[in-house]
């Protein structure tokens, strides 16, 4: 099953399991259904629970936060994370504080599904991955699945969670296939996953970067480097124990993020490793992220912004103290600005 279908299955499950769950967002019931992730849900669960909304992100976020007072458990969907930036007031000032500032007398069981764009000229305002912002905020939970199974399992857990959860999907994962358990499949928030075991270096990937880490690890294995791929799955709560176990095991860490490194989540991972696993580290920590500029539209420049498996191989090679230049992966056969050859734009 594809990642996007797994998201849909999770929503379908939650809507079926709990009459208080509602799904709202621009285009949710439209024929394309948010990249297929909401198709058919309105028909099955009714227009009262699955609905479109006015183009009013901040206001509608507050409306849904208010609806939790009456007992609803809303899922709000944004086709681009960038649109949720309009609602940062309600998410950060309000929802995140709801439980704490009322001394536990309130609860904000909301889920924000935010989709991070990439490729095909998405540009400055349609390709931001601002998970580090959200992960910075006590009171918010931040989930970034990398596989279809985790997408379903984590989304169900997010909807059932009593706190606001920012659930970030990378657009380039929607078409990725994987096994998805049927029915009530739950992955607990705050549990990481070792996507591939290894002992020389830990490749820490966020969201789509897990795939690049796996590509790199596979290639490194052919060249005598055993890389472990660590997928945090949720950034907050963060599975510190699993992370530190991996770093202690390999003694080397490369963090690959879908966003900028400066002041970003990769810095948090590096700091945690340095703080709590310093004695295990055999080499300086390396971080890979976007070029430190807004995302340009033209592929000629955008293609330069994203780290890929090759950069991970280079980084792993270097922290492992390997002699000579790192081996080169075969050149990609599809253009760099599309997730797969079937994608022909425009959105």
């Amino acid at each position: 099953m594809k990642f996007g279908e797994a998201v849909r299955e999770a929503l379908d499950f939650c809507l079926g399991a709990d009459p208080d769950v509602v799904v709202m967002g621009l285009g949710v019931p439209d024929p394309k259904g948010v990249f297929g992730t909401t198709v058919g849900l309105q028909k099955k669960h009714g227009a009262k629970r699955v609905m479109d909304m006015p183009t009013a992100e901040n206001g509608m976020t507050g409306v849904l936060l208010g609806a939790t007072l009456a007992g609803l458990r809303p899922v709000m969907v944004h086709q681009r994370l960038d649109f949720a930036v309009l609602a940062v007031e309600q998410i950060v000032n309000q929802a995140a504080k709801w439980r704490y500032m009322y001394g536990g007398r309130q609860s904000a069981p909301l889920v924000f599904r935010l989709i991070t764009g990439r490729g095909w000229g998405q540009g400055t305002q349609h390709a931001q991955s601002l998970h580090s912002w959200f992960a910075h905020i006590p009171g918010l939970k931040v989930v970034m699945p990398a596989t279809p199974g985790d997408a379903k399992g984590l989304l169900i857990s997010a909807v059932e969670d009593d706190d606001p959860v920012v659930f970030i999907e990378h657009r380039w994962l929607h078409g990725v296939h994987g096994d998805v358990p049927a029915g009530a499949h739950r992955v607990p928030l705050g549990s990481a996953r070792v996507a591939r075991a290894g002992h020389d270096v830990t490749l820490f990937g966020v969201s789509y970067m897990v795939l690049e880490c796996l590509r790199a690890a596979e290639f490194l294995a052919e060249h005598g480097v055993s890389a472990e791929v660590f997928d945090p799955r949720t950034l907050r709560p963060f599975d510190e124990a699993a992370f530190l176990a991996s770093v202690r095991k390999t003694g080397r860490l490369v963090v690959a993020d879908t966003s900028w490194t400066f002041s970003g989540f990769s810095a948090e991972a590096a700091a945690l490793a340095a703080d709590k696993a310093f004695s295990a580290l055999k080499a300086p920590i390396k971080r890979l992220g976007l070029a430190d500029c807004p995302m340009p539209s033209t592929p000629a420049l955008a293609n330069l912004c994203y780290p890929r498996a090759q950069e991970l191989v280079d980084a792993a090679w270097s922290v492992c103290g390997k002699a000579g230049p790192a081996p080169r992966l075969p050149a990609p056969t599809t253009p760099l600005d599309v997730p797969d050859p079937s994608f022909t734009g425009p959105f």
């Binding site: 000229g121 540009g123 400055t124 305002q125 807004p294 340009p296 539209s297 033209t298 592929p299 000629a300 420049l301």
Partner: peptide
Amino acid sequence: YGRATGCCGGKGGSMH
């Protein structure tokens, strides 16, 4: 076309 001679030097694209 995302070219250097574009009105934003290619950085904006059609929407900018």
